[in-house]
Design a protein around this nucleic acid. Sequence first.
DNA 1: AGAACCGCCTGCTTGC
DNA 2: TGCAAGCAGGCGGTTC
Length: 257
Amino acid sequence: MPELPEVETLCRQLQEKVTGRKIRAVTIYDSKLDGIEEIRESIIMEVRRSGKTILIYLDDGRSIAIHLRMTGRLFLHQQKTRLPHTRWRLSLASGNVDLVDPRRFATVKITKIEIDHRQNDLISGFDENQFLALHAGRKVNIKTLLMDSNAIAGIGNIYACEILHRAGISPLKQASALKKTQWKEIFRRGRSILKKGIEKRGTSISDWRDLYGCPGENQNELTAYGREGRSCGVCGGVITRIKQGSRSTFYCPACQK
DNA sequence: AGAACCGCCTGCTTGC
DNA sequence: TGCAAGCAGGCGGTTC
């Protein structure tokens, strides 16, 4: 599942490869995406990330906002053929950018609105004090709060589990019960884990591939997610799986208090 | 108003 | 072996 490091990886690769290119054609292969505004002949000025959304800015002030949701991928290639589950294609002189998405949750929108660049996430100008003022008193468990994209962007199930494991904080803990030092630990560990994820070009547990179809390497860095029954690298306890909401949470009951 | 829950989707895994 | 049920989960919308 593409989270912040995966989307950042794609944005960096796109920025390098498609900036300055003219859009020759757009093809929709899935009726769910019908009605996307005409953008032919526009020129790509810049590619940026906002949370988990990919923003491709055009020369006429509009932008393409792509959200990959669960299984979406972007794939840059020069072939005329397409992979199974290709939903949408941006044709440039230098190649095609295909949206491949088996589960069909991904969205593509054209917007004129000037998108707020304050990326409300840990690695881009995050305001800790503002976050704490708004959310530190909430009666919701910290795992769910970390995955609330309105509160803090970019963190999905995998990175939420990893951050709490490294911070030594139980995912069951109510946000309102956390001490200041624990919040600081979440922010500190969160930053380093997300940055490491970007360095390793994302976590390829199942679907994730970068713009060229290559898996990332961050799956080798995981210490909690997907490791049910294995020993905790911090304390030697046993990683346990529970359900929070309808999502799996992996954590170590021995060292995450 | 804030928290919990639902629905969108389909490929893969699990269980009988 | 085959088939159905279960599972994966971001996030907008709805319900409580």
